[in-house]
């Protein structure tokens, strides 16, 4: 059942013009950022080569091209998730689900996997560009893979947050605004750093804290767990929210 719902959700996303518009804009953004990073690398390569442990192209692209894309997906993921439940509220189609033999959990998971599939396709699109460099030079696949994993995990967590806010309102754009606001908050958490213990504690929960190592080619259990917890938390909140509708009517 979850598979069927996921299929129908991703099909409906892929049918909408908005998804393809986002994909088109993303392709341009990816290309621009990628070429810019590449040009910078070529400019500073002589001075890099003089260092003891010179940064390779892969490491440079991970930090200068893939890492900034997390911010792009902080907007793209909520945009793709915004209609998941807002549209059901707006078109009053939730009754269809509520009166069908489908549990709320199956419905939410199905929708989340459906959205995830489309997001992962876009993440894949972003990672194709560095792979092209393989034609010209040796790449460090390790650092590129860990960066891709970081980007994918973060994007899926952003989608879960977007889906949750989508279940709260029938106005899709409000869902996006709320998601982005929360993400900015999570991003800046503890960064007003004067080194106090409170700020350091808060920083443990911020997104950049858990992203950095992915882009240095290091996959930490705690960092993976952080994003998985975010995903599960917001999926659970969405389920609770939708179940509560049966009680308020």
């Amino acid at each position: 059942m979850i598979g069927a719902i996921a299929g129908s959700e991703s099909r409906s996303l892929l049918r909408s013009a908005q998804t393809w518009l986002i994909a088109g804009v993303l392709a341009l953004v990816f290309a621009y950022l990628f070429l810019q990073a590449l040009e910078t690398y070529l400019d500073i390569q002589p001075s890099l080569a003089a260092q003891d442990h010179p940064t390779g192209l892969s490491g440079f692209l991970a930090v200068r091209y893939l890492a900034p894309l997390v911010m792009v997906f902080a907007l793209v993921s909520p945009l793709l998730a915004m209609k998941s439940f807002s549209d059901e509220h707006r078109q009053q189609t939730l009754a269809l689900w509520q009166s069908s033999p489908v549990s709320t959990t199956a419905m939410v998971l199905g929708k989340f996997f459906g959205i995830s599939l489309v997001i992962l396709l876009m993440v894949l699109l972003a990672c194709v560009m560095p792979l092209f460099m393989r034609l010209f030079t040796n790449l460090d696949i390790g650092v590129l893979s860990s960066s891709t994993l970081g980007l994918a995990l973060a994007s899926l967590a952003f989608a879960a947050i977007g889906m949750f806010f989508s279940s709260m309102t029938k106005h899709a754009i409000i869902a996006v605004a709320a998601s982005v606001l929360l993400l900015v908050l999570l991003w800046l958490l503890g960064s007003a750093g004067n080194g106090s213990s409170l700020m350091n504690a808060l920083a443990l929960f911020s997104i950049p804290t858990h992203l950095a190592s992915f882009f240095q080619g290091y996959i930490g259990t705690a960092d993976v767990a952080y994003f998985l917890v975010l995903i599960f938390l917001f999926i659970a909140l969405t389920i609770v929210r939708l179940d509560s509708l049966r009680h308020v009517g």
Partner: peptide, 11 residues
């Protein structure tokens, strides 16, 4: 079940 607003996906 047919609610008072039919639950239709217009697209």
């Amino acid at each position: 079940y047919l609610p008072d607003t039919p639950p239709l996906y217009t697209e």
